[in-house]
């Protein structure tokens, strides 16, 4: 099953490598990973999308908690949460095709952010499935390039508190 895991880490040299190394070294897979500084510049927040059965997800959250630079691990999948990803897609669009594409852009509430004689760049934001659906629709026009972020996620206010990864802090 697909899990979205939030990790709060100390914003230190090499911390990304510690996390990605943990995943590769133990054979866990990463579907996407996004990371950036929080409002406190000493901390960074990572959102990791991964897959695994319950036992693997339990190991992932425990192993993350065990890292000295990791302050908090939250498995969003177990709670009421929202998640978003963003992508930029360069789509071939000449002549009459443009109008058709613009109407699709509107349906997906995406935005055209660059236009040239033969192509346009569209910015799409949304859940994983929305991004996927947009790509499926756009593919017939001819996709020239894609750049996509990992997912970011957040628990909804008032939702039951996300279970912090493992029940206990790591040794």
């Amino acid at each position: 099953m697909r899990h979205v895991i939030g990790v709060l880490v100390e914003n230190e040299f090499g911390v990304l490598s510690r996390i990605s190394g943990l995943f590769s070294g133990r054979g866990f897979n990463i579907e996407s990973l996004s990371v950036a500084e929080t409002d406190d510049p000493r901390l960074s927040h990572m959102t990791i999308v991964t897959r695994g059965d319950d036992q693997i997800i339990e190991q992932i959250t425990k192993q993350l908690n065990k890292l000295v630079n990791v302050l908090k691990v939250v498995d969003f999948t177990e709670t009421d949460h929202v998640s978003r990803g963003m992508m930029l897609v360069k789509i071939a669009a000449e002549g009459a095709k443009r109008v058709e594409l613009l109407s699709i852009v509107e349906v997906f509430r995406a935005r055209v952010i660059d236009l040239s004689p033969r192509a346009m760049i569209v910015e799409v934001t949304g859940t994983d499935s929305k991004l996927h659906a947009f790509l499926e629709t756009a593919v017939s026009f001819g996709i020239k390039d894609i750049s996509r972020t990992g997912m970011v996620a957040m628990t909804r206010d008032g939702a039951p508190k996300a279970r912090a990864g493992a029940q206990v802090r790591a040794a």
Partner: peptide, 18 residues
């Protein structure tokens, strides 16, 4: 075990004590 990652890593445990 003092290390929570050791628990239920290889076998399913009935009573874990960290």
């Amino acid at each position: 075990d003092i290390d929570p990652t050791s628990i239920s890593k290889n076998v399913k445990v009935d009573i874990p004590i960290v």
